[in-house]
């Protein structure tokens, strides 16, 4: 008898998410439930979706706490970037360095590194740490897309009453335009404030996304190696004793 299998990608991810002692049992439980209950009752598409959801849930339970501080960091930066003094200076400018340190982008670098280290230490696999760091990036990036979309209109309303933002909009839309890219140039003199902010957010999502993806791969990779070395050293020490 040929038995249907869940999609290959979440199966592989599941193996990289689970600690060594529960890898076989938990993946076996999910496979059994998929084949015996979900597939006959739900059909292929919905059963596959169920499997994806279970794997996502396992990832979230293990690593959500790395994504939360990065998300908070982005929210804080976005709020203080939007709500500025009329002169354009940030309300954070006067704070002491010690208070500003937890809000530094270096914290995000450290968190991606930590996610990688914890992931590889937990799963005793280098790739396990890499998946933890990349998963953190995915959650943060998705959040950014939702956050900027949800706050676009209310934030733009506030920004339109600030001379700093009005000046920035006018400078951007009325400066000499570069040649358009295949006929596409969003910076036109008749561009509305809301449209200008929208494209600013799209650009932010794209470029910050690339920066964070690179950061999560590099820092997550370094952290993964460190975590793997630590877990191997620990298991070596416990075998000696």
């Amino acid at each position: 008898m040929t038995m249907s299998n869940p999609p290959a990608i979440p199966q592989a991810l599941l193996h990289l998410l689970l600690p060594i002692d529960s890898r076989e049992t938990v993946s076996g439980d999910l496979l059994e439930e998929y084949r015996e209950a979900r597939l006959p009752a739900l059909g292929r598409l919905r059963a596959d979706f169920w499997y994806w959801r279970q794997v996502g849930g396992i990832w979230l339970r293990a690593y959500w706490w790395f994504a939360v501080p990065v998300v908070l960091l982005i929210v804080i930066h976005d709020i203080f970037n939007t709500f500025r003094a009329p002169s354009g200076s940030s309300y954070l400018d006067g704070l002491p360095h010690l208070a500003l340190a937890p809000m530094s982008p270096l914290v995000a670098v450290g968190l991606f590194c930590l996610a990688g280290a914890y992931g590889s230490w937990r799963t005793q696999r280098w790739a396990g740490g890499f998946v933890a760091a990349l998963g953190t990036f995915c959650i943060v990036w998705l959040f950014m897309a939702v956050w900027w979309n949800a706050t676009l209109y209310p934030f733009a309303q506030v920004q339109q009453s600030n001379p700093y933002w009005i000046h920035a909009w006018q400078w951007s839309t009325h400066r000499a335009h570069p040649p358009s890219f295949f006929g596409f140039n969003p910076d036109t003199p008749d561009e509305t404030f809301l449209r200008w902010i929208f494209w600013d957010n799209v650009g932010g999502l794209f470029f910050l996304g690339i920066a964070m993806l690179t950061m999560s791969m590099v820092c997550g990779g370094i952290g993964s190696i460190l975590g793997l070395i630590t877990s191997r050293w620990r298991s070596g020490e416990s075998q000696k004793s």
């Binding site: 529960s22 049992t25 938990v26 076996g28 439980d29 999910l30 059994e32 439930e33 209950a37 959801r53 279970q54 849930g57 396992i58 979230l60 339970r61």
Partner: peptide, 28 residues
Amino acid sequence: AYGRAILNEVAARLERDVAAGAVQATLE
């Protein structure tokens, strides 16, 4: 009482869909 049977029993008693990860984390 193994993973999948516990998952289904908990879902039946609570009368809602339960995530395998939630049961696994609780068992650990």
